[in-house]
């Protein structure tokens, strides 16, 4: 149980630090130099793909521990932090568009694609539950990480190729 407590402590610390940064950073002079950039958009989606792949791999390898030790929250942290940074940029540059119309269009298309693809994936997960291959709350990390993986990969694909 030491690992579980340690992970919980790390998660709480990250949460507190992130909130403090979100609250304090816009008040500093450094904030004016921060702006949304194309590289950040690409990087966000790459982090989403990595988090999604790691989460799915961990869920397959250690389905019980990923819930018990709060590992799935820890794996999702990098992506959550990058999105918090997006919110921070939105707060600093209020009134200005953070992402352009093509990026919005690609994210919307990717969200629809991820939603449609999540239906057969979750049907497959349901069949695994019915045949007692999986049990407990492990369906949620699978749902979360497959959604994150498909959404991020599709956004990046549409952005670069459409």
């Amino acid at each position: 149980m030491f690992i579980e407590k340690l992970i919980k402590l790390v998660l709480v610390l990250i949460f507190v630090i992130a909130i403090l940064v979100y609250w304090l950073l816009p008040k500093t002079a450094f904030a004016k130099s921060l702006k949304m950039h194309e590289t950040l958009f690409t990087l966000t989606n790459l982090i989403g793909i990595l988090c999604g792949l790691t989460g799915l791999a961990m869920t397959m390898v250690q389905p019980e521990k990923i819930i018990e030790y709060h590992l799935w929250e820890l794996i999702a942290v990098p992506f959550a932090l990058v999105y918090l940074y997006w919110l921070l940029l939105g707060k600093i540059n209020s009134g200005k568009e953070s992402i352009d119309e093509k990026q919005v269009f690609n994210m919307t298309s990717a969200a629809a694609f991820a939603w449609i693809l999540s239906i057969p994936v979750m049907v497959f997960v349901f069949m695994l539950f019915q045949s007692a291959v999986l049990d407990g709350l492990v369906w949620f990390p699978i749902f979360f990480f497959q959604g994150l993986l498909i959404f991020s990969a599709a956004t990046l694909y549409f952005y670069k190729n459409a």
């Binding site: 194309e38 352009d100 119309e101 093509k102 952005y159 670069k160 459409a162």
Partner: peptide, 22 residues
């Protein structure tokens, strides 16, 4: 014009139709 380089590339290639505003 306040967009990303990828957006300009896509418009030039005819893959993305810009809004009236853009």
């Amino acid at each position: 014009v306040g967009v990303s380089r990828q957006t300009i590339i896509s418009i030039e290639r005819g893959r993305f139709i810009p809004s009236t505003l853009l």
